[in-house]
Protein backbone atom coordinates (compact mmCIF):
# COMPACT_ATOMS: atom_id res chain seq x y z
CA UNK A 1 0.00 0.00 0.00
CA UNK A 2 3.21 1.85 -0.15
CA UNK A 3 2.82 5.55 -0.43
CA UNK A 4 -0.95 5.94 -0.58
CA UNK A 5 -2.99 7.44 2.25
CA UNK A 6 -6.20 5.85 3.41
CA UNK A 7 -8.09 8.65 1.69
CA UNK A 8 -6.35 7.85 -1.56
CA UNK A 9 -7.11 4.17 -1.21
CA UNK A 10 -10.75 4.98 -0.60
CA UNK A 11 -10.72 7.19 -3.67
CA UNK A 12 -9.36 4.30 -5.71
CA UNK A 13 -12.12 2.12 -4.39
CA UNK A 14 -14.70 4.80 -5.12
CA UNK A 15 -13.62 4.98 -8.75
CA UNK A 16 -13.74 1.21 -9.19
CA UNK A 17 -17.16 0.90 -7.64
CA UNK A 18 -18.45 3.77 -9.74
CA UNK A 19 -17.20 2.09 -12.90
CA UNK A 20 -18.76 -1.23 -11.90
CA UNK A 21 -22.15 0.34 -11.16
CA UNK A 22 -21.99 2.40 -14.32
CA UNK A 23 -21.33 -0.69 -16.43
CA UNK A 24 -24.01 -2.76 -14.71
CA UNK A 25 -26.60 -0.13 -15.45
CA UNK A 26 -25.36 0.30 -19.04
CA UNK A 27 -25.94 -3.39 -19.63
CA UNK A 28 -29.49 -3.14 -18.29
CA UNK A 29 -30.22 0.02 -20.22
CA UNK A 30 -28.97 -1.61 -23.39
CA UNK A 31 -31.32 -4.54 -22.81
CA UNK A 32 -34.14 -2.02 -22.36
CA UNK A 33 -33.02 -0.38 -25.61
CA UNK A 34 -32.46 2.94 -23.92
CA UNK A 35 -28.85 2.66 -24.97
CA UNK A 36 -28.79 1.99 -28.67
CA UNK A 37 -26.44 0.77 -31.34
CA UNK A 38 -24.81 -2.59 -31.83
CA UNK A 39 -21.71 -1.95 -29.75
CA UNK A 40 -21.31 -1.80 -26.00
CA UNK A 41 -18.00 -3.05 -24.61
CA UNK A 42 -18.08 -3.27 -20.84
CA UNK A 43 -15.16 -2.89 -18.46
CA UNK A 44 -16.42 -5.08 -15.58
CA UNK A 45 -13.52 -7.04 -14.14
CA UNK A 46 -10.81 -4.79 -15.56
CA UNK A 47 -11.28 -1.89 -13.13
CA UNK A 48 -8.09 -2.70 -11.22
CA UNK A 49 -5.98 -2.07 -14.30
CA UNK A 50 -7.55 1.21 -15.35
CA UNK A 51 -7.91 2.75 -11.91
CA UNK A 52 -4.62 1.43 -10.52
CA UNK A 53 -2.56 2.66 -13.44
CA UNK A 54 -4.20 6.06 -13.78
CA UNK A 55 -3.59 6.70 -10.13
CA UNK A 56 0.09 7.01 -11.05
CA UNK A 57 -0.62 9.96 -13.38
CA UNK A 58 -0.77 13.69 -12.84
CA UNK A 59 -3.89 15.47 -14.08
CA UNK A 60 -1.73 17.03 -16.82
CA UNK A 61 -0.80 13.56 -18.13
CA UNK A 62 -2.73 12.03 -21.00
CA UNK A 63 -4.83 8.92 -21.45
CA UNK A 64 -6.01 7.23 -24.63
CA UNK A 65 -7.64 3.85 -25.18
CA UNK A 66 -9.68 1.63 -27.47
CA UNK A 67 -13.47 1.20 -27.57
CA UNK A 68 -13.67 -0.40 -24.09
CA UNK A 69 -13.51 3.09 -22.80
CA UNK A 70 -16.28 3.86 -20.26
CA UNK A 71 -14.22 2.95 -17.21
CA UNK A 72 -11.12 4.69 -18.54
CA UNK A 73 -13.08 7.90 -19.02
CA UNK A 74 -14.57 7.72 -15.54
CA UNK A 75 -11.17 7.12 -13.93
CA UNK A 76 -9.61 10.01 -15.84
CA UNK A 77 -12.28 12.26 -14.39
CA UNK A 78 -14.75 12.79 -17.23
CA UNK A 79 -18.18 13.94 -16.09
CA UNK A 80 -20.35 10.89 -15.41
CA UNK A 81 -23.55 12.65 -16.43
CA UNK A 82 -22.11 13.51 -19.80
CA UNK A 83 -20.64 10.04 -20.26
CA UNK A 84 -24.06 8.52 -19.68
CA UNK A 85 -25.66 11.11 -21.95
CA UNK A 86 -23.31 9.94 -24.70
CA UNK A 87 -24.52 6.37 -24.21
CA UNK A 88 -28.02 7.68 -24.76
CA UNK A 89 -26.92 9.60 -27.87
CA UNK A 90 -27.87 12.95 -26.39
CA UNK A 91 -26.45 16.28 -27.42
CA UNK A 92 -25.16 16.85 -23.87
CA UNK A 93 -22.96 13.77 -24.20
CA UNK A 94 -19.19 14.14 -24.02
CA UNK A 95 -19.08 13.65 -27.78
CA UNK A 96 -22.34 15.44 -28.47
CA UNK A 97 -24.13 12.20 -29.22
CA UNK A 98 -21.99 11.71 -32.30
CA UNK A 99 -19.36 9.36 -30.92
CA UNK A 100 -21.33 6.81 -28.94
CA UNK A 101 -20.07 4.23 -26.47
CA UNK A 102 -16.85 3.54 -28.40
CA UNK A 103 -15.87 7.17 -28.92
CA UNK A 104 -15.95 8.92 -25.59
CA UNK A 105 -13.47 11.73 -25.04
CA UNK A 106 -13.09 14.64 -22.69
CA UNK A 107 -10.34 17.02 -23.70
CA UNK A 108 -10.77 19.04 -20.50
CA UNK A 109 -9.38 16.19 -18.40
CA UNK A 110 -6.82 15.00 -20.98
CA UNK A 111 -8.88 11.96 -21.85
CA UNK A 112 -8.13 11.73 -25.57
CA UNK A 113 -10.76 9.22 -26.32
CA UNK A 114 -11.80 5.76 -27.14
CA UNK A 115 -11.07 4.51 -30.65
CA UNK A 116 -12.88 1.67 -32.34
CA UNK A 117 -10.39 0.65 -34.98
CA UNK A 118 -8.23 -1.93 -33.27
CA UNK A 119 -4.79 -0.37 -32.76
CA UNK A 120 -5.83 2.87 -34.43
CA UNK A 121 -5.20 5.01 -31.37
CA UNK A 122 -1.63 3.85 -30.86
CA UNK A 123 -0.05 6.23 -33.39
CA UNK A 124 -2.19 9.01 -31.92
CA UNK A 125 -0.68 8.21 -28.52
CA UNK A 126 2.76 8.52 -30.09
CA UNK A 127 1.78 11.86 -31.60
CA UNK A 128 0.46 13.24 -28.32
CA UNK A 129 3.67 12.10 -26.64
CA UNK A 130 5.64 13.82 -29.38
CA UNK A 131 3.94 17.10 -28.47
CA UNK A 132 5.12 16.66 -24.89
CA UNK A 133 8.64 15.87 -26.02
CA UNK A 134 8.70 18.66 -28.63
CA UNK A 135 7.67 21.28 -26.09
CA UNK A 136 9.60 19.67 -23.22
CA UNK A 137 6.35 19.55 -21.22
CA UNK A 138 7.29 16.44 -19.25
CA UNK A 139 3.78 15.10 -19.68
CA UNK A 140 3.31 11.36 -20.04
CA UNK A 141 0.83 9.54 -22.25
CA UNK A 142 -0.70 6.35 -20.88
CA UNK A 143 -1.98 4.27 -23.78
CA UNK A 144 -4.12 1.21 -23.11
CA UNK A 145 -3.85 -1.65 -25.61
CA UNK A 146 -5.88 -4.83 -25.87
CA UNK A 147 -4.04 -8.12 -26.16
CA UNK A 148 -5.61 -8.61 -29.57
CA UNK A 149 -4.38 -5.23 -30.71
CA UNK A 150 -0.77 -6.27 -30.21
CA UNK A 151 -1.00 -8.20 -33.46
CA UNK A 152 -1.76 -5.47 -35.92
CA UNK A 153 0.60 -3.17 -37.72
CA UNK A 154 -0.28 -0.14 -35.67
CA UNK A 155 1.22 -1.78 -32.60
CA UNK A 156 4.48 -2.52 -34.37
CA UNK A 157 4.84 0.85 -36.02
CA UNK A 158 3.84 2.87 -32.96
CA UNK A 159 6.05 1.04 -30.48
CA UNK A 160 9.01 1.24 -32.79
CA UNK A 161 8.52 4.96 -33.38
CA UNK A 162 8.15 5.59 -29.66
CA UNK A 163 11.52 3.91 -29.17
CA UNK A 164 13.45 5.68 -31.91
CA UNK A 165 12.03 9.04 -30.81
CA UNK A 166 12.26 8.35 -27.04
CA UNK A 167 8.64 9.35 -26.56
CA UNK A 168 7.21 9.71 -23.04
CA UNK A 169 4.56 7.03 -23.36
CA UNK A 170 3.56 4.08 -21.22
CA UNK A 171 2.12 1.28 -23.31
CA UNK A 172 -0.17 -0.71 -21.05
CA UNK A 173 -1.39 -3.99 -22.51
CA UNK A 174 -4.63 -5.06 -20.89
CA UNK A 175 -4.33 -8.77 -21.42
CA UNK A 176 -7.83 -10.04 -20.71
CA UNK A 177 -6.90 -13.32 -22.39
CA UNK A 178 -9.12 -12.85 -25.43
CA UNK A 179 -9.59 -10.68 -28.48
CA UNK A 180 -13.29 -11.20 -29.12
CA UNK A 181 -13.39 -15.04 -28.98
CA UNK A 182 -9.76 -15.76 -29.81
CA UNK A 183 -7.46 -16.71 -26.93
CA UNK A 184 -4.04 -15.09 -26.80
CA UNK A 185 -2.22 -18.40 -27.41
CA UNK A 186 -4.18 -18.85 -30.62
CA UNK A 187 -3.45 -15.37 -31.94
CA UNK A 188 0.04 -14.71 -30.67
CA UNK A 189 3.33 -16.52 -31.18
CA UNK A 190 4.78 -15.09 -27.98
CA UNK A 191 1.89 -15.09 -25.51
CA UNK A 192 3.98 -13.34 -22.86
CA UNK A 193 3.11 -10.05 -24.40
CA UNK A 194 5.37 -7.84 -22.30
CA UNK A 195 8.37 -9.53 -23.95
CA UNK A 196 7.54 -7.65 -27.12
CA UNK A 197 9.02 -4.57 -25.46
CA UNK A 198 12.50 -6.03 -25.68
CA UNK A 199 12.33 -6.39 -29.44
CA UNK A 200 11.60 -2.67 -29.78
CA UNK A 201 14.19 -1.44 -27.33
CA UNK A 202 11.47 -0.34 -24.94
CA UNK A 203 11.81 -0.69 -21.17
CA UNK A 204 9.92 -3.83 -20.15
CA UNK A 205 8.09 -3.51 -16.83
CA UNK A 206 6.89 -7.07 -17.04
CA UNK A 207 3.61 -8.66 -16.08
CA UNK A 208 1.42 -7.47 -13.26
CA UNK A 209 -1.67 -8.92 -11.59
CA UNK A 210 -4.38 -6.72 -13.05
CA UNK A 211 -6.92 -7.87 -10.50
CA UNK A 212 -4.96 -6.07 -7.78
CA UNK A 213 -5.18 -2.31 -8.24
CA UNK A 214 -2.34 -1.68 -5.83
CA UNK A 215 0.01 -3.98 -7.68
CA UNK A 216 -0.92 -2.20 -10.90
CA UNK A 217 -0.42 1.17 -9.26
CA UNK A 218 3.02 0.23 -7.96
CA UNK A 219 4.37 -0.82 -11.35
CA UNK A 220 2.61 1.99 -13.20
CA UNK A 221 4.22 4.50 -10.88
CA UNK A 222 7.64 3.26 -11.83
CA UNK A 223 6.83 3.06 -15.49
CA UNK A 224 5.35 6.58 -15.56
CA UNK A 225 8.40 8.00 -13.80
CA UNK A 226 10.62 6.18 -16.26
CA UNK A 227 8.67 7.44 -19.27
CA UNK A 228 8.74 11.01 -17.97
CA UNK A 229 12.53 10.98 -17.75
CA UNK A 230 13.72 8.51 -20.35
CA UNK A 231 11.19 7.32 -22.90
CA UNK A 232 8.74 4.54 -23.63
CA UNK A 233 7.83 1.82 -21.15
CA UNK A 234 5.61 -1.23 -21.42
CA UNK A 235 3.46 -3.08 -18.89
CA UNK A 236 1.35 -6.17 -19.36
CA UNK A 237 -1.57 -6.40 -16.97
CA UNK A 238 -3.27 -9.78 -16.68
CA UNK A 239 -6.95 -9.19 -16.24
CA UNK A 240 -10.33 -10.56 -17.17
CA UNK A 241 -13.53 -9.24 -18.62
CA UNK A 242 -16.62 -10.57 -16.93
CA UNK A 243 -18.93 -9.73 -19.77
CA UNK A 244 -18.80 -10.81 -23.37
CA UNK A 245 -16.66 -8.99 -25.87
CA UNK A 246 -19.65 -6.84 -26.58
CA UNK A 247 -23.19 -7.13 -25.33
CA UNK A 248 -24.07 -9.55 -28.10
CA UNK A 249 -21.35 -12.10 -27.26
CA UNK A 250 -22.98 -15.40 -26.27
CA UNK A 251 -19.93 -17.64 -26.42
CA UNK A 252 -18.73 -16.09 -23.26
CA UNK A 253 -21.11 -17.72 -20.85
CA UNK A 254 -19.42 -21.05 -21.53
CA UNK A 255 -16.29 -20.00 -19.71
CA UNK A 256 -17.78 -20.47 -16.27
CA UNK A 257 -14.84 -22.13 -14.57
CA UNK A 258 -12.27 -19.67 -15.79
CA UNK A 259 -14.60 -16.83 -14.89
CA UNK A 260 -15.10 -18.16 -11.36
CA UNK A 261 -11.35 -18.21 -10.88
CA UNK A 262 -11.04 -14.55 -11.72
CA UNK A 263 -14.20 -13.49 -9.93
CA UNK A 264 -12.76 -14.98 -6.76
CA UNK A 265 -10.11 -12.29 -7.15
CA UNK A 266 -12.43 -9.51 -8.16
CA UNK A 267 -10.56 -6.19 -8.08
CA UNK A 268 -13.25 -4.62 -5.90
CA UNK A 269 -12.95 -7.42 -3.34
CA UNK A 270 -9.16 -7.29 -3.50
CA UNK A 271 -9.34 -3.60 -2.75
CA UNK A 272 -11.81 -4.13 0.07
CA UNK A 273 -9.41 -6.64 1.60
CA UNK A 274 -6.53 -4.19 1.37
CA UNK A 275 -8.61 -1.55 3.11
CA UNK A 276 -9.93 -3.86 5.82
CA UNK A 277 -6.39 -4.91 6.57
CA UNK A 278 -5.49 -1.28 7.05
CA UNK A 279 -8.57 -0.41 9.06
CA UNK A 280 -10.94 -3.14 10.27
CA UNK A 281 -13.62 -0.48 10.87
CA UNK A 282 -13.71 0.64 7.24
CA UNK A 283 -16.76 -1.42 6.26
CA UNK A 284 -19.35 1.27 6.79
CA UNK A 285 -17.27 3.70 4.73
CA UNK A 286 -17.21 1.15 1.88
CA UNK A 287 -20.95 0.72 2.05
CA UNK A 288 -21.42 4.47 1.91
CA UNK A 289 -19.15 4.67 -1.16
CA UNK A 290 -21.19 2.02 -2.91
CA UNK A 291 -24.47 3.78 -2.09
CA UNK A 292 -23.08 7.07 -3.36
CA UNK A 293 -21.85 5.41 -6.58
CA UNK A 294 -25.29 3.95 -7.24
CA UNK A 295 -26.86 7.35 -6.69
CA UNK A 296 -24.31 9.02 -8.99
CA UNK A 297 -25.19 6.57 -11.75
CA UNK A 298 -28.94 6.98 -11.23
CA UNK A 299 -28.53 10.75 -11.36
CA UNK A 300 -26.52 10.37 -14.55
CA UNK A 301 -29.29 8.30 -16.08
CA UNK A 302 -31.87 10.95 -15.16
CA UNK A 303 -29.60 13.59 -16.64
CA UNK A 304 -29.24 11.58 -19.84
CA UNK A 305 -32.95 10.88 -20.12
CA UNK A 306 -33.87 14.53 -19.65
CA UNK A 307 -31.23 15.76 -22.09
CA UNK A 308 -32.19 16.93 -25.58
CA UNK A 309 -31.44 14.96 -28.72
CA UNK A 310 -28.91 16.27 -31.22
CA UNK A 311 -30.32 18.41 -34.00
CA UNK A 312 -29.74 18.88 -37.70
CA UNK A 313 -27.19 21.55 -36.81
CA UNK A 314 -25.28 18.98 -34.76
CA UNK A 315 -25.36 16.57 -37.67
CA UNK A 316 -23.54 18.98 -39.92
CA UNK A 317 -21.25 20.86 -37.54
CA UNK A 318 -17.68 20.12 -36.49
CA UNK A 319 -16.79 18.42 -39.75
CA UNK A 320 -14.28 21.23 -40.23
CA UNK A 321 -12.79 23.71 -37.80
Amino acid sequence: MADLTKEQLLEMYRQMVLIRRFEERCEELYAQRKIGGVYLHLYNGQEGTGVGSMFALKPSDHVITAYRDHGIGIAKGADVNRLMAEMFGKRTGVSGGKGGSMHLADRSVNFWGGYAIVGGHLPLAAGIALKSKYNDDKEVVLSFIGDGATNNGYFHESLNLSAVWDLPVVWLIENNLYGMGTPVEVSTGQPELHKRAIAYGIKDFGRVDGMDPLAVYAVAKEAVAYAREHGPALIESITYRYKGHGVSDRLYQRREQEMALYKARDPLTVMEDHLKQLDPGVESALAAIDAAARETVEAAIRYAEESPDPTYDDLINHIYA
Partner: peptide, 13 residues
Protein backbone atom coordinates in the same frame (compact mmCIF):
# COMPACT_ATOMS: atom_id res chain seq x y z
CA UNK B 1 0.38 4.01 -40.53
CA UNK B 2 2.26 5.76 -37.78
CA UNK B 3 3.43 8.66 -39.95
CA UNK B 4 -0.18 9.56 -40.66
CA UNK B 5 -1.46 8.60 -37.21
CA UNK B 6 1.25 10.31 -35.17
CA UNK B 7 0.76 13.42 -37.25
CA UNK B 8 -2.92 13.31 -36.27
CA UNK B 9 -2.12 12.87 -32.57
CA UNK B 10 0.45 15.64 -32.48
CA UNK B 11 -1.91 17.96 -34.36
CA UNK B 12 -4.72 17.21 -31.91
CA UNK B 13 -2.25 18.07 -29.14
Amino acid sequence: MVIAGAAVGSAMA
